[in-house]
Simulated scan of single mutants.
Amino acid sequence: MIWILLILLIPSVYFSARFFLISKEIKEATGDLKEISENIELNRRLTSLDGDKNFEKFLIVVNKYLEESQREKIKYIRREKEIRKEIENISHDLRTPLTSILGYLEFLENEDIREKEKAEYLAIIKRRSIGLYNLVQIFYDLSRLEANEYKFNIEKVDINKAVREYILLFYNDFEKKNIEVEVALLNEEAFVEVDKNALERIFTNLLENVIKYANYKFKVSLEKNNNNVKIILVNDANTLDENDVEHIFDRFYMKDSSRSNSSSGLGLTVAKLLVEQMNGEIKVDINKDILCFSITFILNNDEVNY
């Protein structure tokens, strides 16, 4: 009889001990989970000392959830910081011309101001107002591009002729900086299907970047094969490095962190989005202080030779 009681008692003691240990593990895991959830950015995971396989499988599932939550939390924190920084940048870019405009308007209220000075101040106010309008337009275009809501008017354009015209528009700017311009375009037409206004925005932003960083030389060339046409823009840029180039298409990225010039840091971001949404490709590289942008568009079907 005693043996029977012992036989029945041993499993009872074993399962009681197991239940106690598992209950303790669950209680500790619950506390750890609560602590980890409150500080999800900490790289902590739930562990089991008991060795129960089913409980370990459960913890594996929970840890995977924690890992995913941690990644999402980190992404959220980073994005929140980026948004705050972007709001700060936008506020600065809008406030600067507005402050200038308000300052010159105050000058105009001076009764002793001469007509010549008044005309100069009005001219400055006009320039600042146009710059402010263009800046707001860039913000608007960027929001539409990122939401895929930008309306393109696609037509057949001779990219060879268009690039030549864009270079001529900036001829005086190149001369003022004593930048030697080398042009190596095609001796034939090269038609692509793009939005003409968007194409002008792309090259305006790229050429403004050239004028900003080039010191002495700029070269633009076109290469054409059976299916594509590639536009290559090369200039010296001894103030840029590989890190700058890596972030050059990022929103609001500027080499000059003080944001003291009139640039918004959005021109190349907009250019990249415009190129890509017209089924093109844009790349950038720097090698020994030589900056190179390349833009590739698909040739119009009528121009493709099979």
Score class of each variant (00 low, 15 high):
L21F: 07
K212E: 09
K73E: 15
I286E: 13
E120K: 12
D141M: 07
I154H: 03
L21E: 10
D256G: 03
I167P: 00
R201D: 15
V245I: 11
D302P: 00
L132A: 03
K224G: 12
N205W: 02
N187D: 15
I7T: 12
K255P: 11
A271P: 00
I10M: 02
T239C: 02
I167Y: 03
L46Q: 01
Q277E: 14
L168Y: 08
Y171G: 05
S91E: 13
N148A: 08
I2D: 15
I125T: 12
Y213G: 05
E115H: 08
S129E: 07
F170W: 06
A147L: 13
S129N: 06
L5I: 14
N134S: 10
F191G: 01
S37F: 01
T47S: 06
H92R: 04
R95M: 10
L9I: 12
D112Y: 13
Y166P: 01
F252V: 05
D289I: 03
L185Y: 05
G280H: 06
G103N: 15
E41F: 00
N226A: 12
I83M: 11
V194H: 03
E82H: 02
S257C: 01
K81L: 08
T296F: 02
L59A: 13
N160I: 04
E175R: 09
I248S: 07
S129M: 05
